[in-house]
């Protein structure tokens, strides 16, 4: 996040860090005890699912706290329009975890924006561990920035070509104060507060550079995908849980039994 500030702990309890091969690569958000919402481009190009790790309850990438939890990926569902029209639009991924998230004050799900949400006048925030300067500096502390929403017509004008900004996208950025999202923030949430409830309206997706204020950040519009997201969360079975292992404990159990029998027979 360019022009942001470090976030305090537990302020963004739905924030997820997606690691690949041990490094933070993307953001995400908790939408269910088994599901994380992120960007499709974070997971495409035949990346190995086994190499991903997801962290929740984290504000400093180098300092796990007692509420930090680590997860492996069970499966990733990319939105079909991303697979059809890549790289334009549909930049949404649903990530199913191998085990369930334990919710706490520091780890909570965010609400999905409904399809009929009126975005006018909302106070919205983006968060992430992406680059914090045009020179490529990054931050280990989660950054936050309050970003105004930019009407889609204005965003199309700024980008200069009508087809770049599609109906399943929205734009946000503070073009006067140079605040916007950047590389490494992808997949993270754009959230707005309504009646003391935080709704996710966007998923960080793309932009033309980060340091050119006339090109705001472009987000996948969550309300466009909310039915698809809810459907998969409801119908996809939870991952199979490992059964308790009997074999490693068996030899010691047997030896105890044998010892008991021997001692009984000696009486």
């Amino acid at each position: 996040v360019l022009g942001g500030a470090p976030a305090t702990e537990t302020r963004w309890p739905w924030q997820v860090s997606v690691h690949y091969a041990g490094f933070h690569v993307c953001g995400g958000s908790i939408v269910d005890e088994y599901w994380v919402l992120s960007a499709a481009h974070c997971f495409h190009r035949d990346k190995s699912l086994e190499t991903f790790d997801l962290y929740v309850g984290l504000t400093n990438l180098k300092a796990a706290r007692n509420h930090t939890q680590w997860f492996e990926v069970n499966q990733v569902i990319l939105h079909p329009s991303y697979q059809m029209y890549h790289p334009i639009g549909g930049d949404v991924a649903l990530v199913q975890l191998k085990s369930r998230i334990t919710f706490s004050d520091a780890v909570l799900p965010v609400c999905l924006a409904p399809a009929d949400l009126n975005l006018t006048g909302l106070a919205c925030w983006a968060t992430g561990w992406g680059l914090i300067s045009q020179q490529g500096h990054s931050s280990e502390e989660l950054q936050e920035a309050r970003l105004p929403l930019i009407p889609i017509a204005m965003c199309r004008l700024l980008y200069g070509h009508r087809s770049y900004i599609m109906q399943d996208m929205l734009c946000a950025g503070d073009i006067w104060n140079w605040k916007t999202v950047c590389e490494g923030d992808s997949g993270g949430p754009l959230v707005c507060e309504i009646n003391e409830t935080w709704l996710q309206i966007g998923i960080v997706s793309w932009g033309r550079g980060c340091a050119q204020p006339m090109y705001p950040g472009v987000y996948a519009r969550v309300s466009h995908f909310s039915r698809w997201i809810r459907y998969h969360i409801q119908v996809v079975p939870t991952p199979p849980q490992p059964t308790p292992a009997l074999s490693p404990a068996l030899p010691s159990t047997l030896s105890v039994l044998v010892a008991m029998l021997v001692s009984l027979s000696a009486l």
Partner: peptide
């Protein structure tokens, strides 16, 4: 092949928190 256990119902008695609600400050 195993499809996994059936999904538990939404808003079950395990007391899943409401979405989008931060913990009360000082809690």
């Amino acid at each position: 092949w195993v499809r996994g256990p059936p999904k538990s119902p939404r808003n079950s008695s395990r007391g899943d928190p409401a979405c989008g609600r931060r913990a009360v400050p000082g809690k």
